[in-house]
Design a protein around this nucleic acid. Structure first.
Lengths: 197, 197
DNA sequence: GTCTATATCAGGATAGAC
DNA sequence: GTCTATCCTGATATAGAC
């Protein structure tokens, strides 16, 4: 986990892209944010799009590796979904600018990279749907349609990066608690049948 | 409501932007989609960004004018929120490509136009929060935090345009019914106290 | 209102020295 | 690994005729 040059570039680029938009930021701008010249970036990345791709993987592949194991942990579906919501929000908080970029600039990826990123996202969605369906079968959730619930859950979770600020009125922990309640207790109806968390 | 040249251009541009991304689409591409030459577009719009601005207003100003009056109509808060969800989804359906663009390409707007669009969005959010708070005061909803609930509702509604397809498994009416249940009945808890719809 | 032709320039990417 | 210098494509936007 050494602070490599690559990670430094990716993070600086994410900050700049998040503030000004991918298209408006030049390679020279990214380089300046790192303290080098534009041409030097090409020693680390083959193109500007490759930097964007690295950012997008941070917000798709990384959550899959970090959060989805929470769905395989022991516990009831309600407990596992609650853990996922918490893990998702903590990742969102750690990688806020990356999420903003990865959420809005997908159109700038090459078709190949776009396909990889879309696959990661679809897989995450599918795992959420599966655990919701498992909870319904177990009698713990009572939603009529696991697909719709999974869409609403994922969209609500992803939307958070658009309005959450560290210096806002809501703290991270308040949002975590509030969203666990909204998602697990209310949307999925775990509060009315099983144990929530 | 005559099919003016302007509307035609805006809609054709929205379709192209939605498919290929704002940055990747040239004025020549937009013109070709309308059947004219690139230079001719400048008779109708001063810049490419102005076309994008028109698209963004379609998905921010227009819902404010069409949907928010539903919150002032007679009926309980639960009925009014249900009407808003339906109205929102029908607008999303009518203006699908515009929503996709207006949701993802905000970074390409000038600061002035971005501010106008952001204001429209914030106002919509605030009206949702207000009706949720009104429902809580009336004893019809039981959410602990109207702000969080409003965020989750708006994010879930806006996210729909990313996955809903006319040729998908879910029809529009199924999504409307499902989301009215998820939002009003479950998240806000209207099913457990008052009349839903 | 639409056309042809073109000005203009930003920005991604490369070459090659150090 | 970083630099200076530069190429060069592509795209917005304009000028002015029809």
């Amino acid at each position: 986990m050494g602070r490599g040059r690559r990670e430094e570039i990716v993070h600086a680029a994410a900050r700049t892209f998040a503030r000004d938009g991918y298209a408006a930021v030049g390679m020279r701008d990214v380089a300046e944010a790192v303290g080098i010249r534009g041409a030097s970036l090409y020693h680390h990345f083959g193109s500007k799009e490759e930097i964007l791709y690295a950012i997008c993987l941070t917000v798709t592949q990384e959550p899959n590796e970090l959060n989805l194991p929470l769905l395989d942990a022991p516990g009831t579906p309600a407990q596992r979904v609650a853990a996922l919501v918490r893990g998702h929000l903590e990742h969102l908080h750690r990688r806020r600018v990356e999420h903003l970029v990865g959420l809005h600039e997908l159109a700038a990826l090459t078709p190949e990279h776009r396909a990889v990123v879309d696959d990661h996202r679809r897989y995450y969605q599918r795992r959420v749907r599966d655990v919701v369906a498992a909870g319904v079968r177990a009698g713990e959730f009572d939603v009529p349609d696991a697909r719709l619930a999974a869409f609403a859950i994922c969209d609500a979770l992803n939307g958070i990066s658009n309005w959450f600020h560290d210096d806002g009125e809501l703290g991270l922990e308040a949002v975590v608690v509030g969203y666990v309640d909204l998602v697990v207790g209310r949307m999925l109806g775990a509060g009315r049948t099983g144990a929530t968390a």
